[in-house]
Amino acid sequence: MSFINYSSREINCKIVYYGPGLCGKTTNLKYIFGNTAPDAKGKMISLATETDRTLFFDFLPLSLGEIQGFRTRFHLYTVPGQVFYNASRKLILKGVDGVVFVADSQIDRMEANIESLDNLRENLADQGYDLDRIPYVVQYNKRDLPEIAPVEELRPLLNPGGVPEFEGEATNGRGVFATLKAIAKLVFMELKRSRGT
């Protein structure tokens, strides 16, 4: 549900980073925040617990440049990944324009990934969205760690639909901007498609 203001000539969109607890959603946003020019970003807000787990959401507003004379802004949100915060996750998905699923590549997190993906699909369906039809990309994060599953094994479980996918190391930034660009592109393509007929 983008926000378009013809008077101030702005298009604003909402992107949500989803995924199991500790997969690196907040780290993605922190890296983007740390590596974006000051005039292209606002403040990053983190509503977190004392142990730095996301409690409600992280929020980062970004400006991307102009399209057809309109300034484009992205509002990036992360959800809290811990299972028991589901009510909050549902709220944050409201009005979403695109979703990034951040998977934790570690072998022992496979169940958590699958559970989180099922949960995403369900929560989207609750709001009338179909995961197979909205702008959506997958990031296999933590590729720098030793005990990880090969992407060929992750793909059939976490990306059977074959949406754009990226390997990530959010702590050092690998794949972070590639993921963001991909979702931003899909969101604009969808905006165009949904209105272009």
Binding site: M1, S2, F3, I4, N5, Y6, S7, I134
Partner: peptide, 14 residues
């Protein structure tokens, strides 16, 4: 897609 986009036009914005 669920819901409608929010669109603001000049007249209403004023």
């Amino acid at each position: 897609m669920a819901g409608a986009d929010t669109v603001i036009f000049e007249e209403e914005f004023a």
